[in-house]
Design a protein around this nucleic acid. Structure first.
Lengths: 133, 133
DNA sequence: GTGTATAAGTCTCATTTAGAGACTGTATAT
DNA sequence: ATATACAGTCTCTAAATGAGACTTATACAC
C-alpha cells in the first residue's frame, strides 16, 4: 500500500531497517511457503529420496518439490546427497538446524489442532451470517 | 505429484483421512499466508483501522489486506467492528483466539531470530558453491 | 531384443493468484 | 472550490504455480 508510513515504521527505517529485506521476514516467508512444513515433517521421520517424497506428498508437483527442496537446502535445513547408483539416487534429510526447526513447527501445529474446533465453528458462523441476508 | 502413495498416507486415507481437506492443513495454510503473521503482530499492539494497518504494512496492497483480514475474521482470530462515523470507520482487533495465536507465532519468530545468522551463512555458502563452477 | 519402469529432475504451456492503481461516495478541513 | 480521508471494490497486468511431456541410462519382464 502506498502513502506515508506510520511513526514506528518510519523510525525503524530511519534506523536503517528495510522491511523489504528483513531477514527474519525472508526466513518466515520460506517457512510459511505452502510445502515447506509438509516436507520438513516428512523428513523428520527419516531421509527420503526425491520420488519417495513426491509419493508422500501426493499433491505437490515435481516442479514445486524441486523448488522447495532447493530453498530448504539453501537455507541449511535440508541436506542433499547424491549416490552414484545406476540410475543415480538423491537422498534428502534434515540437518541439525532442520531438526531444531521441528520444535517451533510442532508448537504451531499443536495450536492448530487445539484450535481446530473453534476455527471450524467460527468459519461456520461467518459463512452462515453471510448467507443469511 | 501422481503415482501410488506410500504406506503411511495410504493407511491414513483408508482411515478416512483426506489430505486435500485436512483441517489442520487448511489452518496452517492460512497462518502461513504471506501477510497473516504481519497483520496479527500489528494487531497485537492494539486495535487498528483499515488504513492504519495499511500504513503499518507499507508493501501490502489494499486488495490483499482486505482479503487477509476477511480470512482472519472468518477463522475467528480477528474481530471487525464498524463505527457509524462520517465517513464510517472500521476497527480491527484480535479476538481471544487471535491472542492465543501469539504464543506459537512468537516461538516461530524466536527461532527465526536465533537461526538467522546460521541461515544467512548457509545461504552464502550455497550461493558461493553455485557460483564457483 | 522389445517394451516398460525407475531414477531425479527440467521445460513448456495453461491456470491461478497477487499486485498496482483507478474509482466510489460522503464529509470535513483548507 | 479543492484536496483529503474513510474502507473498500474493480479491472488489468504481472508473477507464481500446476500439469504433464521429455531426458538419459539401466534393469527387468516377456
Amino acid at each position: 500500500m502506498t502513502g506515508p508510513t506510520n511513526d514506528r515504521i518510519a523510525a525503524m527505517k530511519a534506523d536503517g531497517f528495510d522491511l523489504e529485506d528483513c531477514p527474519v521476514r525472508t526466513i518466515l516467508d520460506h517457512l510459511a511457503a505452502k510445502w515447506t512444513t509438509l516436507i520438513v515433517f516428512e523428513l523428520a521421520e527419516g531421509s527420503r529420496r526425491f520420488n519417495a517424497l513426491g509419493r508422500s506428498l501426493p499433491d505437490i508437483s515435481k516442479r514445486m518439490l524441486t523448488q522447495s527442496l532447493r530453498e530448504l537446502e539453501r537455507d541449511g535445513l535440508v541436506r542433499r546427497e547424491v549416490f552414484d547408483t545406476k540410475p543415480p539416487s538423491v537422498e534428502y534429510s534434515l540437518t541439525e538446524m532442520g531438526r531444531s526447526f521441528l520444535a517451533p513447527l510442532e508448537t504451531m501445529t499443536d495450536w492448530a489442532v487445539q484450535s481446530q474446533a473453534d476455527i471450524l465453528r467460527a468459519r461456520a458462523a461467518f459463512d452462515g451470517a453471510a448467507t443469511a441476508s
